[in-house]
């Protein structure tokens, strides 16, 4: 094991070589282990912490230095990671890529604090400082966790139900010209109606708000997934079907082993579009009907003018939705691994 102190020296010629090879390389994308990249996160955190501690701001009295401790924690992790990456090449590669993004995120926090807490450009209580938002998040963590759980259950029930129905209708309409004749007009007329427009009807017809929300989310997912499945199935290369027929394929094989795999790239486009519409429908349904979930939490907190909680819920929502999106991308990368030049998420 080499002493840590040697590495910055040995890294210098490597950087010089890379710059020679590709002079057009711009700093944020540079794959080199340059010290600026590594130090960007601790430096940004230090600046943010300094501004938070030194400049006068009107933090709520009960904040008790939570935000300072949070920033100090980030600083400690960043410095630790800078040390460990010399020994762990996987982390090093990840940090080369991610450090500028993290630094920018922390500087955004800093900018937020300057605008709200220090310069008072935005009116209170609508725009609390990051420290107040963090405080709300920690104070209300039990309720927020419960709401996230309820949103997840509602979203997944609606999404899975919608996708299952959409795959069945999509394959039927895409494969059989008879089904297409009768199914396509329904799809074309009913499909484009935004699912949220059905809310008044759903409230009257359904026994419970949760049940009607699931149906609405399923409806929102159903249209794009069906549409894309239909086009994927109907555009299966005829020569694949010809080949399969000369190999002795039955109709079952043609549908499940040729047409559906061939339509998978299209189906995934539909799944992503459906996920987007399902987020929207989820939040609206929770705001209007269901008495739990993140959408409900946002409007409830707004009712009490607790904007710290509103922002806290929005941040959790962002993390929640992008996590689900990432999971779907991972699934796609696995299922469509055979595709040439697929963009990995």
């Amino acid at each position: 094991m080499l002493p840590i102190g040697q590495h910055p020296v040995s890294a210098v010629p490597q950087i010089a070589k890379e710059q020679l090879e590709n002079p057009a390389l711009n700093p944020p994308a540079a794959p080199g282990a340059r010290w600026q990249t590594l130090l960007s996160v601790p430096a940004a955190t230090l600046v943010t912490l300094a501004i938070h501690l030194c400049l006068p701001n009107n933090e709520p009295a009960n904040e008790a230095g939570l935000y300072s401790r949070f920033l100090a924690g980030v600083l400690a992790v960043a410095i630790l990671a800078d040390g460990v990456q010399f020994l762990w090449s996987g982390l090093k590669r990840w940090m080369r890529n991610m450090c500028p993004i993290f630094a920018a995120a922390i500087l955004t926090l800093c900018g937020w604090e300057l605008i709200t807490g220090v310069l008072h450009w935005l009116p209170l209580p609508y725009f609390p400082a990051p420290g107040a938002v963090l405080q709300s998040m920690v104070d209300d963590r039990a309720l927020l966790l419960d709401c996230t759980w309820h949103s997840l259950v509602l979203l997944l029930s609606g999404y899975v139900l919608g996708v299952l129905i959409a795959l069945v209708t999509g394959v039927c309409i895409g494969w059989s010209s008879h089904m297409r004749y009768w199914g396509m007009p329904v799809l074309k007329v009913v499909g484009p109606i935004p699912a949220t427009a059905w809310i008044p009807l759903a409230m009257v017809l359904s026994p419970s708000a949760v049940f009607s929300s699931i149906i609405l989310i399923a409806l929102a997912v159903w249209f794009p997934v069906t549409m894309l499945t239909v086009s994927g199935i109907a555009n299966t290369r005829a020569s694949y079907l010809d080949v399969a027929r000369t190999l002795g394929a039955s109709r079952w094989y043609l549908i499940f082993r040729v047409a559906i795999p061939a339509a998978m790239p299209n189906i995934f486009v539909g799944l992503f579009m459906g996920l987007g519409t399902s987020f929207l429908t989820l939040v609206v349904a929770e705001t209007v009907g269901v008495k739990s979930g993140l959408g409900w939490y946002v409007s409830w907190a707004q009712g009490w003018a607790e904007y710290g909680k509103v922002f806290a819920a929005l941040i959790i929502m962002a993390a929640f939705f992008s996590t689900i999106m990432t999971v779907l991308f991972k699934v796609r990368d696995r299922v469509l691994g055979w595709q040439k030049g697929i963009i990995k998420w």
Binding site: R237, Y240, D242, A244, L247, G248, Y253, K340
Partner: peptide, 28 residues
């Protein structure tokens, strides 16, 4: 299946590996 056909474009199923493409006739 008793009359096999090979086109100018190999028309391999891109979602199957070589081995699975070759066995697709048996699966069918």
């Amino acid at each position: 299946a008793e009359r096999g056909l090979v086109f100018q474009d190999p028309n391999l199923f891109p979602w199957l590996t070589v081995s699975r493409n070759i066995q697709s006739g048996l699966v069918a």
